[in-house]
Deep mutational scan, measured.
Amino acid sequence: MFKRLMMVALLVIAPLSAATAADQTNPYKLMDEAAQKTFDRLKNEQPQIRANPDYLRTIVDQELLPYVQVKYAGALVLGQYYKSATPAQREAYFAAFREYLKQAYGQALAMYHGQTYQIAPEQPLGDKTIVPIRVTIIDPNGRPPVRLDFQWRKNSQTGNWQAYDMIAEGVSMITTKQNEWGTLLRTKGIDGLTAQLKSISQQKITLEEKK
């Protein structure tokens, strides 16, 4: 169930391209415009997507990853294993993690069937560096609404905000991946996880038929 919630949630996290980005210092504006741009692209490019579902990787690479804190999220997933990894191991892992996100997020976007969304009203940021933004996803086919909290983090150097995690039903996506990959990290280390991520990233994206 959580895996499905995570995939549905990713439908609204794909941010804007650099040329049309919203105010990078306001995570609420980023979330709002990102959702609108993403849904528009999914709707307008269905012919290309249906002809070649792996085209979704391109959308992810162009529109999402430049505005997601990939390395920060990847380091959180590694936890204690990050500090013990060599620079070469980290570089290989982050490259594999990025390719994994292209496949995983692309597969999530393949679930698009006309969903709509509501974003919580903007709250004062103050001096906060981590801000959760509640998004409610509404399914046109009558499924119950899904309420999610996207975690946005302020870059201490640039002042810009980027998304790095999502919490559904009190469970963090980062925590879920830590639990899912924990045994592999304990037995085969970061190299074993890197190899698995490379394998997963090679899987073809498949479209979910409308139910």
Results as ranks from 00 to 15, higher is better:
44 N>I: 11
125 L>K: 15
151 Q>A: 08
110 A>D: 14
37 K>G: 11
114 G>E: 07
96 A>Y: 15
204 K>G: 13
39 F>E: 00
32 D>G: 09
45 E>R: 03
71 K>S: 05
147 R>G: 01
156 S>G: 05
115 Q>V: 01
3 K>A: 00
169 E>W: 01
15 P>K: 15
43 K>H: 05
168 A>G: 08
82 Y>V: 02
42 L>W: 02
67 Y>H: 05
112 Y>E: 03
107 Q>K: 05
208 E>A: 14
121 P>C: 09
27 P>I: 07
68 V>F: 15
125 L>W: 14
41 R>D: 02
195 A>R: 11
195 A>D: 10
207 L>Y: 14
64 L>D: 00
184 L>W: 02
16 L>D: 04
12 V>T: 06
185 L>H: 09
81 Y>Q: 12
51 A>D: 14
119 I>Y: 10
136 T>A: 11
187 T>Y: 15
63 E>W: 00
154 K>G: 05
113 H>T: 13
173 M>K: 02
131 V>N: 10
63 E>Y: 01
70 V>S: 15
1 M>R: 00
197 L>P: 02
63 E>N: 04
50 R>M: 11
145 P>A: 08
186 R>A: 00
145 P>Y: 04
103 Q>D: 15
160 N>P: 01
71 K>L: 01
192 G>Q: 12
72 Y>S: 00
152 W>V: 12
98 R>L: 08
63 E>I: 01
1 M>K: 01
44 N>R: 14
90 R>I: 03
46 Q>L: 12
201 S>F: 10
150 F>E: 00
195 A>S: 09
205 I>M: 15
103 Q>G: 15
5 L>Q: 00
139 D>N: 15
162 Q>R: 07
54 D>C: 05
69 Q>T: 14
128 K>W: 10
139 D>M: 15
116 T>C: 14
100 Y>N: 13
112 Y>T: 04
136 T>E: 07
9 A>V: 13
133 I>Y: 04
202 Q>K: 11
156 S>L: 02
16 L>Q: 04
73 A>N: 03
71 K>W: 02
171 V>G: 00
198 K>A: 10
194 T>I: 12
3 K>M: 02
127 D>F: 03
21 A>F: 05
77 V>L: 05
78 L>R: 02
33 E>Q: 12
120 A>F: 14
152 W>P: 00
162 Q>C: 07
31 M>D: 00
210 K>Q: 14
45 E>F: 04
100 Y>T: 15
105 Y>N: 02
194 T>G: 07
179 N>A: 12
194 T>C: 05
106 G>Q: 02
190 I>F: 02
132 P>Y: 03
143 R>Q: 04
49 I>W: 05
11 L>R: 01
56 L>K: 02
46 Q>H: 10
47 P>I: 08
193 L>T: 10
70 V>W: 05
115 Q>A: 02
12 V>K: 00
162 Q>W: 02
12 V>W: 14
144 P>F: 12
85 A>E: 06
53 P>S: 13
22 A>H: 10
187 T>Q: 10
154 K>M: 11
95 A>H: 14
58 T>S: 11
12 V>Q: 03
76 L>S: 03
161 W>C: 05
211 K>P: 12
101 L>H: 15
164 Y>K: 03
84 S>E: 13
